[in-house]
Design a protein around this nucleic acid. Structure first.
Length: 852
RNA sequence: GCGAGUGUGGCGGAAUUGGCAGACGCGCUAGAUUUAGGAUCUAGUGUCCAUGACGUGGGAGUUCGAGUCUCCCCACUCGCACCA
């Protein structure tokens, strides 16, 4: 073996061997139990960043660990290749999105390969290829057939100057990022997926996702936002006609003191009394000119007018004047709102303006609300008052009990409401999956026949960033004939939201080359669901909810057999780094700082806060430099050791050096004992010293195994291996224990494999003389017998403060332990002259003497 | 604003889940080795008025015992439906 550790040499050697031996190829039909491990696939932005290094290092530990435990592992990688940055690059630099994307993929694939991740590269695909998106188009057609996809009006951000739709990200302070022109809302006909149809199931199944972090499930439940609302009938004072009202705050019903109708409400005309006629007509005319979106926004002036009529509160019979209000919309709910000024801000503003009565019906804890003294509505929780038999209930409880009471009195009924809205999937962009429909003047919206799929993105496009969707300007694409009547027709020019591609890619990995459908049911069945999914916490709601929704849709379309896509979920934190800036040159890259000075002007560099690594703040580390300097094993080790996966990781150059130093230390430990441990047949020697080191060896196996398997605590697993290496260095009578030494070093190398596979394989084969491969070999097992300790160190406290320590036989009785504790010199000193009130004994751990 | 998190030495982080706070690593100090530097090895390293006291963002509480449980407050981070 080599005396010195040469990372770059051995890393390239082993990456070559794994590729040649196809070590990570996943195949169906194995006797071994399957394990599908997936990390969120990357957007091909150009180069991998530390977030990728971390995400994929975490995944690789689990994939390699499971493979060593004997599972048949599927660990694929691919590209989330559609999206805005490709189109922006085209606008700014004239490169075609397809070329830009494929060059980025080439580059990033090379970088990922250089990291030595155990992917089955044969399954790689990019979502921008027609081989992938044609199946997405097919899924869309099936959804259309079932009414799960539909069109409706909705608003987009519109830049009047560029004549184009802007993403939220492209709007800064309500202005266009390119031209600074104010952005205006614009109504467009757009495609939607009926995710609300699945709201109940998506909610219910959150209770069964026991392998997901509770915080993510809570966020999803809140996002779906199920609530029980009511439809309530308010009878007019003068007749039996009723005004139907929809509300989710039936708990405030006793506080409803007036009624607000939408200006378009059909009862407006009949309810307006002769005396109010002129005023109402003027108000209606004014509202007609107001924009619908603005009318409901918080800042807009709440205005209204009295109709002259009254209705009755169904629970307490109170007379409620009926108003017309500009913020009530006819197309939401029933077009009528019961107004509770004390507990709704808009009603509060309205009541103050028109001097309408107020009654408090919910009292918050520790505060007494008086209508006259209130400056804003109380919309939080509290106890019911002024609500007759419901007084004293929590308002959340009262939502149910009042709803029940209304149903019983036949003046209302319960309704279920969700905060979740249908998923708008239309994008007025080029670089996305074309939505496969055709518009015909005679036949209307006509789906593209399945046989004509895929609808391929045309390539001859000019990108200006102005004038709407680029696709709309390509006549050869838009002009087509109607599949139904053969008459002239035009194609849909909107493309899908890129979340659509990432909603089913995990299923496609099970059969990436299938030419018969989106998924090969048999193969999908053998691999799905994903056993472990790993990715950023920022995807807690949207991506993960959409993927769950798609799984259920594909199931109901008969394409798959699972209810949920991801059995276990690990959400990893961000990678952060200290920011640096120069007074004249602004943000600086780490390589632009030398000994605290700016390399351009020599000025003192100001250190800023530690923030998420981003190009804009220049607090980024290029993985390529890191690999070149230390090797990928060191890069992997640091990103795993510096923090537990779910927490943010602070990048630190000196920490990286520490990890590099540790690998050198491991190499030397093996090298120094190389001659001693050549014979694999020697059994571990049974002496006190030998037994001691063996106990540490087996304790480490147990700790590393459970840290990886139970909790992904890679940082503590690595710390334990470091302790074992320290113990090997400290082990003085090495030469007398070749068997124990060999076992210890083999254990270190084996346990390190999932974290730093290259150095591990190299030591395993060249120093330890093994013919087999560690990566596809066996994970070590611990020997319980080796863990047993004869003596235990017990802490003795007096009144909860540590006053002494006693070493006792491990199997000591409680009484004997108590005696040993009380007779410890220092303990005796502290209980001298006091009365012992109580002695608490925690076997194997601690004794606490309570004195007074 | 709404929803979800996080907060422990000079720094990153540990703590068998209510039982020795600070494992492991970085940094720092001293010594050994070396022509020197680097590398390596050994020892030390929470604070202070130091046989002890104090100490896990701040404040209160439960307990023999609280980083861990309860309540209130503060600071920061993520998501909020067209970034991915």
């Amino acid at each position: 073996m080599q005396e010195r550790y040469n990372a770059s040499l051995i890393e390239q050697k082993w990456q070559g061997i794994w590729e040649q031996e196809q070590s990570f190829k996943a195949t169906e039909g194995s006797q071994r139990e399957k394990y599908y491990l997936l990390e969120m696939f990357p957007y091909p932005s150009g180069r991998i960043h530390m977030g990728h290094v971390r995400n994929y290092s975490i995944g690789d530990v689990v994939a390699r660990f499971k493979a060593m435990q004997g599972f048949n592992v599927l660990h694929p990688m691919g590209w989330d290749a559609f999206g805005m940055p490709a189109e922006n690059a085209a606008i700014q630099h004239g490169t075609h999105p397809a070329k830009w994307t494929s060059e980025n993929i080439e580059n990033m694939r090379m970088q990922l390969k250089r990291m030595g991740f155990s992917y089955d590269w044969d399954r790689e695909f990019a979502t921008c290829h027609a081989d992938y998106y044609r199946w997405e188009q097919l899924i869309f057609l099936k959804m259309l057939e079932r009414g799960l996809a539909y069109k409706k009006q909705s608003t987009v951000n519109w830049c009047p100057d560029c004549q184009t739709v802007l993403a939220n990200e492209q709007v800064e302070d309500n202005c266009c990022w390119r031209c600074d022109q104010e952005v205006v809302p614009k109504e467009l006909e757009q495609w939607f997926f009926r995710i609300t149809e699945y709201a109940e199931e998506l909610l219910e199944f959150t209770d069964r996702l026991s392998g997901w972090p509770e915080s993510v499930l809570t966020m999803q439940r809140n996002w779906i936002g199920k609530s029980i609302g009511c439809e309530i009938d308010f009878r007019l004072e003068s007749s039996d006609v009723v005004i139907k009202v929809f509300t989710t705050r039936q708990d405030t019903l006793f506080g409803a003191t007036f009624m607000s109708l939408a200006p378009e409400h059909p009862l407006v005309a009949p309810l307006t009394t002769a005396a109010q006629q002129a005023e109402v007509a003027a108000f209606l005319k004014k509202v007609q000119n107001q924009d619908k979106i603005k009318r409901t926004s918080d800042e807009y002036e709440k205005e209204g007018v009295f109709t002259g009529s009254y209705c009755l509160n169904p629970v307490n019979g109170n007379r409620m004047p009926i108003y017309i209000a500009n913020f009530v919309l006819m197309d939401y709910g029933t077009g009528a709102v019961m107004a509770v000024p004390t507990h709704d801000q808009r009603d509060f503003d309205f009541a103050r303006k028109y001097k309408l009565p107020m009654t408090v019906v919910i009292q918050p804890e520790g505060e007494l609300l008086e209508p006259a003294a209130m400056t804003e509505a109380w919309t939080g929780s509290g106890r019911m008052i002024n609500s007759e038999e419901f007084d004293g209930q929590e308002n959340e409880t009262a939502k149910i009990t009042i709803a029940d009471a209304l149903e019983a009195k036949k003046c209302g009924k319960k309704t279920v409401n969700y905060r979740l809205r249908d998923w708008g999937v239309s994008r007025q962009r080029y670089w996305g999956t074309p939505i496969p429909v055709i518009y015909c003047d005679a036949c209307g919206v006509v789906p593209v026949p399945e046989a004509q799929l895929p609808v391929v993105l045309p390539t001859d496009i000019v990108f200006t960033g102005e004038g709407g969707s680029p696709l709309a300007q390509v006549d050869s694409f838009t002009q087509t004939s109607c599949p139904t009547c053969n008459g002239p027709a035009r194609r849909e020019t909107d493309t899908f939201d890129t979340f659509v591609e990432s909603s089913w890619y995990f299923a496609r990995y099970t059969c990436p080359d299938d030419v018969n459908g989106p998924v090969d049911k048999k193969k999908a069945e053998s691999w799905l669901p994903v056993d472990q999914y790993i990715g950023g916490i920022e995807h807690a709601v949207m991506h993960l909810l959409y993927a769950r929704f798609f799984t259920k849709v594909l199931r109901d379309l008969g394409l798959m057999d699972i209810d949920e896509p991801f059995t276990n979920l690990l959400t990893q934190g961000m990678v952060c780094m200290e920011t640096s800036s120069c007074p004249t040159h602004g943000w600086l890259y780490p390589e632009e700082v030398d000994a605290g000075k700016c390399t351009q002007c020599g000025a003192d560099v100001k250190l800023g806060r530690t923030e998420k690594m981003s190009k804009s703040k220049k607090n980024v580390v290029d993985p390529d430099h890191l690999i070149k300097q230390y090797g990928c094993d060191t890069a992997r080790l640091f990103s795993l050791f510096a923090a537990p996966p779910e927490k943010d990781l602070e990048w630190n150059e000196q920490g990286v050096e520490g990890c590099s130093r540790f690998l050198n230390r491991v190499w030397r430990a093996v090298y120094d004992n190389h001659a001693l441990i050549q014979d694999p047949s020697v059994k571990p020697e049974v002496t006190d010293e030998g037994r001691n080191l063996r106990r540490i060896v087996h304790r480490t196996i147990k700790k590393v195994t459970t840290d990886i398997d139970d909790s992904f605590h890679f940082n503590t697993a690595i710390a334990a291996i470091m302790e074992l290496v320290n113990a090997i260095y400290a082990f003085e009578r090495k030469t007398e224990h070749p068997g124990v030494m060999r076992e210890a070093l083999e254990t270190v190398v084996s346990l390190l494999t999932p974290f730093v596979p290259h150095i591990a394989e190299e030591l395993w084969s060249t120093a330890l003389g093994h013919e087999d491969r560690l990566s596809t070999g066996c994970w070590p097992r611990w020997d319980e017998a080796a863990l047993v300790e004869a003596q235990k160190l017990i802490v003795v406290q007096v009144n909860g403060k540590v006053r002494g320590k006693v070493t006792v036989p491990a199997d000591i009785s409680e009484d004997d332990l108590k005696q040993a504790a009380l007779h410890d010199d220092n303990v005796a000193r502290f209980i001298d002259g006091m009365t012992v009130r109580k002695v608490i004994v925690i076997p194997g751990r601690l004794v606490n003497v309570v004195v007074a």
